[in-house]
Design a binder for these strands. Structure first.
Lengths: 229, 229
DNA sequence: CACAAGTATGCTGCATGCAGAATTTTGTTT
DNA sequence: AAACAAAATTCTGCATGCAGCATACTTGTG
């Protein structure tokens, strides 16, 4: 049987958004992924199966399975005989990923203009307006989360599952870095302006314009982030 | 210690292209992936840990870890309590994936024009010429493999690792389907014509043209494949 | 004869044990 | 005191054992 602590882990995972049948595997994956994204596990850290397992209250077997999963996602690396290490992204890695992300979001924007319903677009507009509120208040964390939500929403509105899945993998790799690198008032203002254009293009269903904005927005993100790496 | 059969599995894996230090994990992943791509494991098949493990000569533990890895790659699905199943792709899944692939290859083409050396382009030309030979002989399998190689080469020449990695995941999901659906002499001729244009655009380093060809080529691939699903 | 309930088998998911590699500590020599 | 060597410890990688769930089968009943 799964231990007490493991049951807790599953419950915590399930409470984020109840799944048909939450599994320990998924719970561990989600937890370790968060630990990486939130910076609890610093890049370069060697993951000690014994300690980490005790910490999470699971035995080494399901933990190892979860780690292999995260290796495949590109968040961890495997050194034979030495276990898993939190992957370190070079500046080039980040740049490369942002180029691809920009391209994927550009595609998503184009498809979203085509496939989204009016109601769905209105929902994105609401997210956008709430985000602008947070910007007025200079409330960084909720701004950041809403920002992510908007990008995810556009991806979802593309109605292309393959696109959503590859995007989310790349996105997860950079999540931490993007959060770190979100500095400077004038650059922030620039990002906000981009978002204003975005929502307008989406409402006008102007596929080419939205696509362009999203791609260029990502290039600017690189400018914002590059010094933080 | 890893069993005799396991050692054999590793050796076989290593012989494809010797790695610094081949691991059993990688060998199992590669083997099962191939079994799926080559159709030995039909979509929908439930993977029996006991049998499959015996078949490959490994115990359940490393096998399960490998399966989790393949789940993350999207080749398998997990039903809680019922283990791993070879993922079944719907027509929409394939179409969605091809759209994304087309976009990624388009990006790769653009980057390749920018970053590839002349020598590298000459190598692609050689692959192309060999592929044309195979077309003349109507020798399907080597043609297919060279075709894949050319596409992979363009990806590599983009010098963008993130791009290579997301592309290869998506590519692996469709590899089997693309092979199946490569039928009909007139469509084949069309694909060959596309490739002729591709190599010309690459040699001319005409980024926009190459990008366009690659994206459109993928749309045509859908036409070739759609009836086979 | 059809169908449902109970039973039996088999499989997954998790824990633990063990061998060998990696690392650290300790001891020895210069 | 520093550098190297050897022993001891720790950790990974793999195998196996066990509990609980899923499924198939059997048996009883309408």
């Amino acid at each position: 049987m799964a231990s007490e602590a493991a049951a807790l882990l599953i419950e915590e995972f399930d409470s984020r958004g109840p799944i048909a049948r939450p599994t320990l595997h998924d719970a561990i994956v989600a937890r370790v992924r968060d630990m990486i994204i939130e910076g609890e596990l610093v890049p370069g850290t060697r993951l000690h199966e014994g300690n980490l397992g005790k910490m999470l209250g699971v035995s080494r077997t399901p933990l190892r399975e979860a780690l292999k999963f995260l290796v495949s996602e590109g968040l961890l690396e495997l050194s034979p005989g030495r276990g898993a290490v939190v992957r370190q992204f070079s500046a080039k890695d980040v740049h490369d990923s942002l180029i691809v992300l920009g391209n994927l979001e550009g595609l998503a924007g184009r498809l979203a203009c085509e496939h989204a319903t009016d109601a769905e677009i209105r929902e994105v507009r609401q997210l956008h307006d709430r985000m602008m509120d947070m910007y007025e208040k200079r409330d960084r964390l909720p701004y950041f989360k809403l920002n992510q939500n908007i990008h995810s929403a556009i991806l979802r509105l593309s109605k292309n599952d393959a696109l959503v899945s590859v995007h989310s993998v790349l996105q997860a790799r950079l999540k931490r870095i993007r959060y770190i690198g979100n500095e400077g008032p004038e650059k922030w203002a620039g990002a906000v302006a981009d978002h204003e254009e975005m929502i307008n293009a989406l409402e006008a269903r102007d596929a080419e314009r939205l696509s362009k904005i999203l791609t260029v927005h990502m290039e600017k993100t690189w400018e914002r982030v590059r010094n933080a790496i």
